[in-house]
Simulated assay, not measured.
Amino acid sequence: MFCYGTIHKGQKYLRQTNVIDGIVGDWVCHQECQNVAKALDMYDDCDPDYGLSDEMFNESINQYIYDEHYDSETDDVQAEWQGLTRYEEVCKILNELDAESK
């Protein structure tokens, strides 16, 4: 739900069934999307009743990429961050955060 990407057979993911305003719905996301949301403290500012929205998730990912990978010479994000799917961006961010923690 966060990155709008496909969860492929064999991938780890989270599933949660919710009732919001009397409507039952399933929420699913890649494990990596959940991990990056936690690592970037996205849950700190979300609505306590409705949780982290996909809009907030995507804004946070965009902000991270801008903050960490903006190239002022080209007035754009670095080339290796362009043309990626949101899921690919999430995985790159997790790899960066993991490398920084070592």
Rank of each mutant, 00 (worst) to 15 (best):
G51T: 09
C91E: 09
I61V: 15
D49Y: 03
Q16A: 13
Q63C: 07
Y70A: 00
Y87M: 13
L97E: 11
K9N: 08
L84F: 04
V77F: 01
I61P: 05
V90P: 05
Q63R: 15
Y66Q: 14
D45G: 04
H69S: 07
L14W: 13
W81E: 06
V19K: 14
D75F: 03
M1T: 06
I23E: 15
H30C: 10
A39G: 00
I93M: 08
W81I: 09
D41G: 09
K12C: 01
E68S: 12
V24S: 03
E80N: 13
Y50K: 15
D47N: 15
Y4C: 04
V24T: 13
L94G: 01
N58L: 10
E59R: 10
F57A: 10
E96T: 05
L40V: 09
E88S: 10
P48G: 01
W81V: 05
A39C: 01
I7T: 05
Y13M: 08
Y13A: 05
M42H: 07
M56Q: 15
P48N: 05
L40K: 01
Y50T: 14
V24G: 04
K92N: 11
G10F: 02
E80C: 03
D47G: 01
D67K: 02
A99W: 03
S53N: 09
D71G: 01
E68D: 03
I65G: 05
L84W: 12
C29N: 08
S72N: 02
V28Q: 08
T17M: 11
S60M: 13
K92H: 03
Q31S: 09
S53G: 14
C91Q: 13
K102M: 06
W81Q: 05
C33G: 04
A37P: 06
Q16E: 15
N62T: 09
C91P: 00
L40N: 04
Y87W: 11
I65Y: 03
V28C: 04
I23A: 14
H30L: 12
Y70F: 12
T6S: 15
T85L: 10
D26L: 04
T85H: 07
E55G: 10
D98M: 00
Q34I: 12
E55R: 12
T6K: 14
Y43N: 13
C3R: 08
N58T: 01
A99I: 05
V28F: 01
I20S: 13
R86L: 08
F57Q: 08
D67W: 05
M1F: 02
Y70K: 00
F57E: 14
Y43L: 15
G25I: 00
G5Y: 05
G10T: 06
P48T: 07
V36M: 11
L52P: 08
D75T: 03
Y64W: 14
M1C: 14
I61L: 07
E55Q: 07
D21W: 07
E89S: 09
V90E: 10
H8I: 06
E100W: 07
Y50S: 14
K38W: 10
C3G: 11
I65F: 00
V19W: 02
V90H: 08
D45Q: 08
